[in-house]
Amino acid sequence: MVENNEVARVPAAVAAALRSEVVSARILPGEAVTEASVSARFEVSRPTARLAIDQLVAAGLLRREANRGARVPVLSRADIVDLYDSRALVESAALASLARTGAVPPAAVAHNRALELAPDEAPFAADDIAFHRALVSAAGSPRLTRMHDALMGEIELCIGQVDANSLWPPSDIAGQHSLILRAVVSGTPDEAARLVREHIETSRDRLLDHVDRATLAEHHRPRP
Rank of each mutant, 00 (worst) to 15 (best):
E198Y: 02
G153H: 14
D127K: 13
M152G: 00
D128R: 13
E156P: 00
A118M: 04
Q161G: 11
I155M: 14
I180C: 01
F124G: 04
L157D: 10
A130D: 13
L179P: 04
P170D: 07
I180T: 04
A130I: 07
P123T: 14
R146C: 09
D149L: 14
I173Y: 10
T188P: 00
E156I: 04
G175T: 11
A118S: 09
A183D: 09
G187V: 00
E154W: 11
R143E: 11
P123E: 09
E191F: 00
E154I: 02
T188R: 08
G187I: 02
I159V: 15
P142L: 04
V184S: 03
A118T: 06
I129E: 05
G140M: 01
G153M: 14
A183G: 06
E198R: 01
H199Y: 04
H132A: 05
C158K: 09
I173S: 03
L135W: 09
H199W: 04
A134Q: 13
N165W: 14
H148A: 11
G175L: 08
L181M: 12
D127F: 15
L115C: 05
R182H: 09
R143C: 04
A150K: 02
F124Y: 14
S186L: 03
G153I: 10
A138G: 03
A164C: 08
G160C: 11
I173H: 01
E198V: 05
Q161K: 13
C158D: 07
A139H: 03
D172V: 11
I155V: 14
T188N: 06
T145M: 15
V136C: 12
Q161S: 12
E201D: 12
G153S: 13
S137D: 12
A118E: 03
A193C: 01
A174C: 10
I173Q: 02
Q176Y: 09
L157E: 12
R197T: 12
E154N: 08
N165H: 14
D172H: 10
A164V: 09
R182E: 11
S141Q: 00
L144F: 07
A122R: 14
T202E: 02
E201V: 12
E198L: 10
S171W: 05
R143Q: 11
S137H: 13
Q176W: 06
I155E: 11
A193F: 00
I155S: 09
I159H: 10
T202Q: 01
R197Y: 07
E154P: 04
A150L: 10
P189G: 03
G160Y: 11
R197N: 06
A125Q: 13
G175I: 12
D163H: 06
L167P: 05
L135M: 15
D149C: 08
P142F: 02
V184T: 07
I129R: 08
R146D: 14
G140S: 02
L157C: 12
I200G: 01
D120Y: 03
E156A: 15
E201C: 05
E154M: 13
V196S: 00
A138R: 06
G160W: 12
L167R: 04
